[in-house]
Design a protein around this nucleic acid. Sequence first.
DNA 1: TTTGTATAAATGTATATACACGTATTTATT
DNA 2: AATAAATACGTGTATATACATTTATACAAA
Lengths: 151, 151
Amino acid sequence: MKLEEAIKSTKFKSEVHKAVLHILYTAWWLKSVGAKELKEFGLTHEQYNVLRILKGKHPEQMCVRDIASRMIEKSSNVPRIIDRLELKKLVKRNTSTVDKRETVITITQGGIALLTASTLVMDEKMMKQFVLSEEEAVTLNILLEKIREIE
Amino acid sequence: MKLEEAIKSTKFKSEVHKAVLHILYTAWWLKSVGAKELKEFGLTHEQYNVLRILKGKHPEQMCVRDIASRMIEKSSNVPRIIDRLELKKLVKRNTSTVDKRETVITITQGGIALLTASTLVMDEKMMKQFVLSEEEAVTLNILLEKIREIE
DNA sequence: TTTGTATAAATGTATATACACGTATTTATT
DNA sequence: AATAAATACGTGTATATACATTTATACAAA
């Protein structure tokens, strides 16, 4: 579906203005397509993101701050996302012995299993379905980098 | 700042995979840059979006469903966004005389004034600052359209 | 008319976002 | 060592997201 149909809007002030709306709409679209798959595993997008970050360092532990710095949405409230993951026994919390201010988090075996299964589905149902080629993705990445360059 | 720095991640499964994360990150970045400006006017991104949609049809009224279909994030809870706009006297709610199930919304003079002022700032502080050219924006729009084309 | 079904909006609930603030702990400065 | 400043995390609040349910109304068929 074209952007114009999606948000029932035909006139944009400029192509740049349209691109801004387009990025916002596409992000929403990507999130909702992904969320549909993750729901099968009882995970939200943010919980999945935290699990992926933890798995990346596993078996090392990570402190909350360290996880937060790797989140896509920087204003994510990581302690609360961890609350929910802990309730489901997907991660474990401990106070750091080195710095008692820090809480260190570890992904559990259950967390790894759930992440592996959900990533398999996510890659199959999302990544592999895109018509976009690798070359086009390179261009897209360059342009997105550029929009964040501000005068 | 490069994406790699922003989310402290260097290896991506592919350029397409990176592009997906990049779109999500750029959308978050755009939203937070915009939100900072809107805060001066006591508006959230979503409230601003609803006001813009209403202004587009003004002086015609719009029903809730019609507004919802024009929202960028389709799962927005429009009645509740309108609740907040109504409290601030930026919009008015009425029951439709044609179909009593419908609630019709009108933007008030105060709403128009606030929207005009905030749009001026948004265009100045955001749109005009982008380094991206119109030609690059066209390419970006084509590529974003393409990523939503699924096999 | 009555019944059933569809539709529009509002409302409820869990989670997340955005941001301010509090508390404990560490590090730096005097 | 004592005090100040910075840091890490948790918590509180308003708003939003995502989705299910409820209520009122419209409309078509029995």
